[in-house]
Design a protein around this nucleic acid. Structure first.
Lengths: 104, 104
DNA sequence: TTCGAGTGCTACAATTTATGTAGTATCGCC
DNA sequence: GGCGATACTACATAAATTGTAGCACTCGAA
């Protein structure tokens, strides 16, 4: 049971998804899992988020069946999670172009 | 000048972008602008976010050159913003599939 | 068999961020 | 003038996040 979107309570999947992905560190955590599984502390160190928030985000992502914990290797993307990531991969290239345009 | 990512201070474009998109209501606002320009109050009503936050998110998005304000029509995506949205459009279809798998 | 290192995870006070309500200021129009 | 619409702001309350410290468990080495 995924937490409902806060603003609009329609429960439409796209809204629930945008709400989930719009929580702090969620996109970043998924991103850090793109290549290989990571341990709890690796995610903490890589993101710089507090353990409290890493833990609750991982819980949300597990509830959403995007991430799972494998005792051997650590946290990893599920099949669904990998699908989602695939949609986001073009962001990497695009972000470079964007950075030039915005002159961060 | 886009605010730097909080956790990792690398300033790498992808991290800055993930940080920006990971702020509450940002994805949602971009989504609401996908079809046509919207007025400030329309965005407020559609998202359910407070005017304070709508205003500051719009300011961030304008700074990031993803959104602009046209006096005639309202807030709209820039060329860059439309490019970004194009990357996100598949989410709509995918979210339906995801919803079935997760049983929200 | 105790020690240390690694694991996921939690408690909790301090800080930061978001909310909700009300309001300001400006514009065009009748 | 007065009305409605616009973008936007003030500010007290509520909620989320942070940072630090630590717990409980497992496993392998001393």
């Amino acid at each position: 049971m995924v937490k409902r979107v806060r603003g609009s309570k329609t429960g439409r999947p796209i809204m629930v998804l945008l709400d989930l992905l719009g929580r702090r560190w969620v996109l970043r955590i998924v991103w850090e899992l793109r290549e290989k599984p990571r341990r709890f502390r690796e995610l903490q160190d890589a993101t710089g988020a507090s353990p409290t928030i890493v833990n609750s985000r991982l819980a949300e992502l597990r509830e959403a069946k995007l991430v799972e914990l494998d005792a051997e290797s650590g946290y990893r993307l599920t099949a669904l999670g990998k699908e989602l990531l695939r949609l986001f991969l073009p962001l990497h290239v695009w972000s470079e172009k964007w950075a030039k345009a915005v002159a961060i």
